[in-house]
Design a protein around this nucleic acid. Sequence first.
DNA 1: CTTCAAACCTGTGGGC
DNA 2: TGCCCACAGGTTTGAA
Length: 288
Amino acid sequence: MPELPEVETVRAGLERHVAGRVIASAEVLHPRAIRRHVPGVEDFTGRLCGVKIEAARRRGKYLWLDLADGEAMLAHLGMSGQLLVQPEDTPAEKHLRARFRFADGGPELRFVDQRTFGGLALAELVEVDGTAVPNTIAHIARDPMDPLFDAALAVRLLRAKRTEVKRALLDQTLVSGVGNIYADEALWRSRLHWARPTERLTAKQAQAVLSAAAEVMAEALVAGGTSFDALYVNVNGQSGYFDRSLDAYGRVGEPCRRCGTPIRRDPFMNRSSFSCPRCQPKPRTRTR
DNA sequence: CTTCAAACCTGTGGGC
DNA sequence: TGCCCACAGGTTTGAA
């Protein structure tokens, strides 16, 4: 599933292949794909017709296209979303949800999404902390790859939480871009158990786990960013990074790369958490 | 105000 | 062979 490094790869592809072009027509093939665009399908397609795309931007797992009329087309890939740049005569994908044709007659932009957790919407741009962002994601924090990311602030916010450390890492208002995979990897690198109460984190531990999250995402971006030159801008969660570089996520029963102890899998928020029983010992039962 | 959990989706794969 | 169900998980929404 696309997380920050994959979304950044898509953003770079959009910047290269779509920025500077004028949308000739927009078509929505599945209304759920634009459910967050409250005014509806006709408003969405109508307002995009004839508009020039200025740039492709990203914050956390959200990305958006700056439009010449001053608004933005916001996209979230959800679990299974893809933004593809395809020649117009390419057959429609099975889960094609929306398509955008361009005035230059070149390759079109397609939104494909099997599970429809993702979606597109038009949004007004607002200034938050000196940066223009779509109003509907004004609450999303800067991600660790943002040049203006405030690490000291994130450490303070993390320690001010009253919850488990992994829940806090997944809180997009504290730091954005961290999903289940990178949360587990960051916790493994910093030798913290996912259920460690945030109020018991030392400043050093909080700083370490946030740094680890930034590092693992930066490494994933390098590993997954090899297809920037391809016209076919694809995100399918199958980047080489996942096959060879994960230390915890999905490795249940396999030996910890540090100590050899089999990795465990715990139920966590209707999904899974992977960790090393020895390197990441369970915290003492908390007393509320 | 903060924290928590259900709901939203559909394809895959294991078990029987 | 084929059916059923668990599982994958980011975000929103409403409850506590």
